[in-house]
Design a protein around this nucleic acid. Structure first.
Lengths: 125, 125
DNA sequence: GCTAGTGTATTAGTTTACTATTACACTATA
DNA sequence: TATAGTGTAATAGTAAACTAATACACTAGC
């Protein structure tokens, strides 16, 4: 896995697991790969995996069962609000940063639509 | 100044100076505060300021003159593309992250407009 | 020339994230 | 009950960012 060296790896792993849950690669009740396996898959140390997982357990996104494994929560309310939260956070960060640059809400929309148009042309061309 | 402890301080200082230039608190040819003064203002060490500035000099956003100070470039082309680049990067990061979450372009627009509507109501209420 | 103000360099020490390694605790099952 | 698979804990060492302190190099102005 590719990591951004400006952000702690354990934090990027948390985001990665959020993503896997949101796009339903991991479903409610699913067992995650063993910590040692995740360490191999993501090419990091077990302790780093553990740090990410322990925060996710703290947040009750994962349930851990000693001797058995780590499991995605079956609390659907939690999972729905997880997606909502992660998506909104992305938008909020972008919006706040642009507002700091004195970009108005209308201009944010303009920039985004222009960007998406350009992206679409690129992806098709 | 407030720093996010997930991102190196020197990097956040770079972003801060970009911002000061883009919103024209710093104009072409302007002299920046002395490195020791910036260190006091931003409550960090001189070396940390130096690291941020040296990257900005490397990028030719700033010009340094030993014994005189650090100055904003007068290369207007550079300054225009700086704003363009910083804004686009914000949009791109958000867009890429949401795409990873299998959010479609149309949905990105929907989420953004919903968010802005909610923000507007909050800010007015 | 001296001095104050500027950027630059160096060295040492602290903190945090990460790695490496080993050991321990619990569960399931052959 | 022995063993393999799981999570957990602890210790030691490395690297990067940051701080602290000092010294050096250049510029301007008295």
């Amino acid at each position: 896995m590719q990591f951004d060296d400006k952000v702690p790896i354990y934090y990027q792993i948390k985001q990665y697991i959020y993503k896997e849950i949101i796009i339903e690669h991991l479903n409610p009740g699913d067992k995650l790969p063993a910590v040692r396996q995740l360490a191999v898959d993501l090419t990091v140390n077990v302790n780093t995996i553990q740090r990410a997982l322990s925060e996710l357990v703290e947040e009750e996104v994962l349930i851990t069962q000693r001797g058995k494994g780590n499991f995605v929560t079956t609390d659907m309310e939690k999972l729905v609000s997880l997606k909502q939260h992660v998506v909104e956070e992305q938008i909020e960060v972008m919006y706040d940063h642009l507002t700091e640059l004195q970009v108005t809400p209308d201009e944010v929309l303009e920039y985004l639509t222009a960007y998406m148009k350009q992206r679409k042309e690129q992806d098709n061309g």
